[in-house]
Design a protein around this nucleic acid. Structure first.
Lengths: 175, 175
DNA sequence: CACTTAATGCAAATCACTTGCAAAGGTGGA
DNA sequence: TCCACCTTTGCAAGTGATTTGCATTAAGTG
């Protein structure tokens, strides 16, 4: 109850995505070659803010780099060599990474937060399309809502307007 | 883990809205004249599906009718004459009403579900703009994402695509 | 009015997430 | 390289929202 800004503990962002990881399907592929930034580049960001580069944190960043879709804390934890660190540490680390703008939190209403390493310049703003049956997800390139955001903000006199947009449906396989 | 469709317990819908009700502000006005459908009309829907019209359910529907913004279970419960029914009953009733398509669940990431009585023909599809400071909310008339929904669905071969869209910002008062 | 079945209340259980606290581990400076 | 200092971590316990088990009560129905 003391992180994030304002009354909501969420981080108004956008998108949605998932994959529970136990139903090995066409979902996220764990363990493929690092598709994101180098680990050193990431740890450097930590160091830049005088945060310690600890073992658990490196492992966590590494797992995040391996996942192309948002992962839940549990999934992330499961992908770490047993005993690498405590679940609580994963929670704490993701909070830190989020507050540092290194990861983005997604929430698609199933009561479990999901995290993705931020890639692009604008935080790699994007959305997801989730299959409500198999939970497979598709990362959507474009963000359609930017203009809406502006018009909604202007029309209602709101400032710093952000949005969260998620799409749900039945994927081709599940139809 | 056994209601709703598919793997997600959420009901992929759209929108967002809230108001915690204790900070009496420009937020939801409880107790104004019934702005929504008559109670008899509502109970009729229940009866049509051979659901019983119980005391608690009538009270719950009544409170829902009085609120123009989505309410949390707790708020709803608090607005019922003390001792009218158990908190658990409110949870169960809302599940029922949701599954019957009579209420819509909104979720804006603070970990508490909010419900609104469904009004219009298309389920009164709309979105909300929430102030992250005072939690006041604005109901947005139009739905901007319908077209996206179609294009996203087509482009990815998904069926029955729905979306959830929420806007967050700082309201005029809080700036 | 008796009956059948759904609904309710109460207590206890889950679940995701957070917090308190003492022990362990990075880091910058001597 | 060694240390003191302050951040992190692990473990246990706590929250808050929501669900579940089960015996009891109350809507509909004939």
């Amino acid at each position: 109850m003391n992180d994030g800004a304002g009354a909501f503990k969420q981080s108004p962002g956008a998108g949605a995505a998932t994959c529970h990881g136990d139903e090995g399907d066409s979902c996220h592929r764990v363990g493929h070659s690092p598709g994101k930034r180098r680990l050193s580049e990431l740890t450097e960001q930590l160091r830049a803010k005088s945060r310690k580069i600890t073992g658990p944190r490196q492992k966590i960043l590494d797992v995040l780099r391996m996942n192309r879709h948002p992962v839940t804390i549990k999934e992330l934890f499961a992908q770490m060599p047993r005993g690498d660190c405590d679940l609580v540490t994963v929670y704490r680390s993701l909070h830190l990474l989020e507050s540092m703008g290194m990861v983005k939190r997604f929430d698609f209403g199933d009561g479990t937060a999901r995290f993705e390493l931020i890639d692009g310049p604008d935080g790699g703003h994007h959305h997801h399309l989730i299959c409500t049956r198999c939970e497979s997800i598709v990362e959507l390139e474009d963000c359609f809502a930017k203009e809406m955001e502006l018009s909604v903000a202007k029309r209602n006199g709101f400032a710093s307007v952000t949005h969260r947009l998620e799409f749900f449906g039945i994927c081709p396989k599940c139809q």
